[in-house]
């Protein structure tokens, strides 16, 4: 038994030392999304991509591993995680003309430690039976929507980021009042995922819900879920004022990355035109690179104005957002 463990350890250790052309990725993103991208990268460069996928505790793992960490690149699905990594000093700056040119300044950190790959909108879905309506996020707290709103847990990173953007706009007290208003309008306790809310609208349990943009595209391309998506409009909120809340998926290089050059190559590849097109087509997200178009389907939802609020501000208000959610007992 012990021998076997030792031999496994020895094997893993050798493996780590010997393999030369590789790059190691810690990913919050699901493998099936990034794997086609990695495969193209490996075919092109011969650099092997190793991946660990996890959501909970990735930053902590990196922190505990310290300077012996094998991680080169981190992929996240939310701005807050990137800022958390940055705040903990777990990232290093990447100086690359390619990255700077590809990623607009709004979607990368000033110190070049993190870069967005795609953007996604926090939309409001509304039942088609209601007709077209122009929404503001603020409307969800209005009495006319009593018993008609559905959402997933308020503590989900996508909702927390939205609440943070509300704090930037309305301050703490205003946001708390908004949260309490939304809570009293809920048709049911926050539960399930973004698609589940659309399903609930389809079943007339509620009339409006919060949901990320790409889920709409994903539902439309799923045979069973198409019915749900067909029963709602996707609305871009706050178009007559500050614009719709936008979050990002992004990447960063680990401070102690053992394969810096390969990591840089992978990062540059991920913002290249073909990679950005893949992002747009496979997951219906908005590519961050100017000049690369969203997929036909996504483009058909129309142009929209995005909230110009810097992503750092959203991340800064995250803890306050969580506290307000606790205070409003939003999930209880």
């Amino acid at each position: 038994m012990f021998k076997k463990i030792v031999s496994v350890l020895a094997f893993t250790a050798c493996f780590a030392v010997n393999a030369a052309q590789e790059v190691n990725v810690y990913s919050y993103r699901q493998p099936f999304l990034v794997e086609p991208l990695f495969k193209t990268f490996t075919d092109k460069t011969g650099i092997k991509v190793n991946v660990v996928f996890a959501k909970k505790g990735m930053a902590e793992r990196l922190k505990r591993e310290g300077k012996h960490s094998p991680a080169d690149i981190l992929l996240t699905t939310d701005i807050s995680r990137l800022i958390e990594l940055q705040d903990n000093g777990l990232l290093q700056a990447v100086n690359s003309k390619n990255l700077e040119e590809a990623v607009p300044a709004q979607y990368r950190s000033a110190d070049d430690t993190w870069f967005a790959l795609t953007t996604r909108v926090r939309n409001i879905y509304s039942a088609k039976r209601l007709g077209k309506i122009d929404f503001n996020y603020e409307d969800l707290a209005k009495p006319e929507w009593k018993g008609r709103v559905c959402t997933r847990s308020g503590k989900h990173p996508y909702n927390v980021a939205l609440v943070a953007s509300m704090i930037a706009e309305h301050g703490e007290a205003g946001t708390l009042a908004w949260l309490e208003g939304v809570k009293s309008n809920l048709a049911r306790k926050p539960q399930g995922n973004d698609r589940g809310q659309v399903q609930a609208i389809n079943q007339k349990l509620c009339d409006v819900s919060l949901g990320n943009s790409y889920y709409f595209g994903n539902m439309l391309s799923d045979e069973k879920q198409k019915v749900w998506a067909d029963s709602v409009y996707i609305n871009f909120p706050n178009q007559s004022n500050r614009g719709a809340h936008v979050n990002i998926s992004g990447m960063a290089m680990a401070k102690y990355a053992p394969n810096e050059d390969n990591a840089k190559a992978l990062m540059e590849f991920l913002v290249s035109v073909p990679a950005q097109q893949l992002y747009a087509e496979t997951n219906m997200e908005y590519p961050v690179r100017k000049g690369v178009n969203a997929s036909k389907l996504v483009a058909s939802w129309g142009e929209f104005t995005a909230d110009k609020l810097p992503l750092e501000v959203i991340a800064k208000h995250r803890k306050t957002a969580l506290k307000l959610l606790d205070k409003a007992k939003f999930d209880l």
Binding site: A13, E65, H68, P70
Partner: peptide
């Protein structure tokens, strides 16, 4: 000696 890397926390040892 050559550094062994994370032989305890980075392998299946930690999982088991």
């Amino acid at each position: 000696i050559e550094e062994p890397g994370l032989i305890l926390s980075g392998t299946i040892f930690a999982i088991v």
